[in-house]
Simulated assay, not measured.
Amino acid sequence: MRLRRAPGVSAFTWRALVELILVGAVCGVLGVHIVLRRLAYTADMLSHVMLPGAVVATLAGADLRLGAAAAVAAAGGATVRRATHGKTSQATITGVIVSGSLAVGAVLASASDGFRVDLAAALVGSPLTVTASDITVFAAIGLVVLVTLAVLAKELTFAAFDPVGLRALGCPARWLDALVLILLGAVVVAAVPAVGSMLPLALLAGPAGAALLWARRLVPAMVLAALLGAAAGAGGLALSLTYRLATGATVALVCGLIFLVACGFAAARRAG
């Protein structure tokens, strides 16, 4: 069923609204698992590591997401392997990958004939230029992510709160960790046209963190995080159009504001 835009709303604004609502909702749900498993820093790493891949893809005339996906796959695989088999700590590996990725991306961009608009979009996104195919790609990936989280909800929850107990029961906890990273990588890559490589963490952590402060159980927290993420996407777009601000950055700021408000209410509730 095709979505019909409201009268007076331009096509590019309508596409941006649909894309940001989808991105916000899916990132909100997945973000609950990311926050519970303390993977926010890893999510930040995967977001930043997309930059050199996106730069290479742009300079080669290919889709940004192809280069971003290759970079995320390489970094995610290296992180998991070194963290499970090496002596170097996870934080050290992640820090080196983040700084190295930004450096490589900056060097490649400076070596090109000029810093193209596509490369700027790879940094902070360009929701107002998303296409119908961008929406379709993210909707398909988002559906796969949501179905996977629903099917494995019990195992993922158990792994988040008691990974030792899960391993004692013979469940493949390491495979669940890898699966969460795969879902995370797929979402941040698919979200590049809307929020670029620098801002996915805001949509993953802000609404989810706020929802976990307000909701006591996992399922209500996921539903609330989806609603807050979608609201952040729609609200950020409205503010950016009204005051002529960068859309992706405004959405990220709204996510941060939502989390700060949730922290304030949580503190007031504890004080009362």
Results as ranks from 00 to 15, higher is better:
L59M: 13
S47M: 08
L119G: 00
S47Y: 06
A54Y: 03
A178E: 07
D63G: 01
S110V: 04
R174F: 09
V151M: 12
V96I: 15
T136L: 14
S99L: 11
E155D: 15
L51V: 08
V130G: 06
A73H: 02
R116L: 11
A168L: 14
D118Y: 00
A68D: 06
L46I: 13
V80K: 00
A62K: 00
L143R: 00
L146E: 08
R82V: 13
T148E: 03
A83M: 06
V124Y: 11
R82F: 09
A160D: 07
L143T: 15
L46W: 03
A78M: 13
A69N: 04
A106I: 15
Q90K: 11
A120Y: 10
P172T: 08
A168R: 12
A69I: 04
D177W: 08
L183G: 05
A71C: 04
P172C: 08
K154N: 14
T58F: 03
G77W: 08
A139I: 10
R65C: 01
P127R: 04
V145E: 09
I97W: 04
L123F: 03
A173S: 12
P172F: 11
I141F: 12
A120E: 11
M50W: 01
S99F: 09
A103R: 06
A83H: 12
D162K: 09
V147R: 05
A160Q: 08
V144G: 07
T129R: 13
D63S: 12
V130E: 03
V188H: 02
A62N: 00
G61K: 06
V151W: 14
L66I: 15
V98H: 03
L181G: 01
A109M: 13
L166W: 04
L181V: 03
A57S: 14
G114A: 14
S110M: 13
G67Y: 06
P127N: 05
T136P: 00
V180R: 00
F115A: 11
D113K: 12
D118C: 00
A60K: 03
A132Q: 12
L169E: 14
A186M: 13
H48T: 08
A168V: 09
V192E: 02
P127C: 03
P163D: 04
F158Q: 07
R81N: 04
V80N: 06
V187L: 15
L156R: 06
A75E: 02
R116Q: 12
V56P: 03
S110H: 14
V130C: 04
A74V: 14
V187Y: 00
V72C: 07
P127T: 03
G185E: 06
G53T: 08
